[in-house]
Simulated assay, not measured.
Amino acid sequence: MQTKKLISYLSCEKFEKNIFTSLEERYKCNIIKDAVIINLEEDEQIILFKYGVFICWNVKFENIKFFMDFIKNFEINSFDIPFIEELNYTLENEFKINFDTIYLNNLSNISKIAISQALAQNVKLDQFEKELLTSIENNSSIPLQLAHTGKINLTKKEISKKIGELFLVKSKMNLHYDLLDTPEFFWEYPEYENQYEKLIKYLDIKSRVEVLNKKLEVIQELLHVLGDEQKHRYSSFLEWIIIILITFEIVINIKDHF
Rank of each mutant, 00 (worst) to 15 (best):
K4T: 07
E13V: 02
K17T: 14
I19N: 07
E24D: 14
R26L: 10
Y27C: 13
C29V: 15
I38V: 15
Q45L: 12
I47C: 04
I47M: 11
Y51V: 04
G52A: 04
G52C: 07
C56R: 01
V59K: 03
K60I: 05
F61K: 14
E62M: 05
I64Y: 04
F67H: 03
M68F: 00
D69K: 15
D69I: 05
K72T: 08
F74G: 08
P82N: 10
I84P: 10
E86G: 13
N88S: 12
N88I: 00
T90Y: 05
E92K: 13
E92D: 14
N93E: 15
F95S: 07
T101Y: 11
L104K: 01
N109G: 11
K112V: 04
I115F: 05
S116Y: 03
A118D: 01
Q121T: 06
V123D: 03
K124I: 14
Q127D: 11
E129C: 02
K130E: 15
L132A: 02
L132H: 01
L133K: 15
T134G: 00
T134L: 11
S135N: 11
I136D: 03
E137C: 01
S140G: 00
I142H: 14
L146H: 05
L146G: 02
H148V: 14
T155I: 06
K161N: 14
G164Q: 06
G164T: 12
G164W: 02
L168A: 14
K170I: 08
K170P: 05
S171L: 00
S171W: 00
M173Q: 08
H176A: 01
Y177G: 05
D178H: 14
L179V: 04
L180R: 06
F185H: 08
E188L: 06
E197Y: 02
E197I: 13
E197M: 11
D204R: 13
S207N: 15
L212H: 09
N213T: 13
K214V: 03
I219E: 03
Q220K: 13
Q220D: 15
E221G: 01
E221P: 00
L223S: 04
G227T: 13
Q230P: 00
F237E: 09
W240F: 15
W240Q: 09
I241F: 09
I241C: 10
T247P: 01
T247D: 05
E249V: 06
I252C: 11
K255A: 13
K255N: 06
F258Q: 06
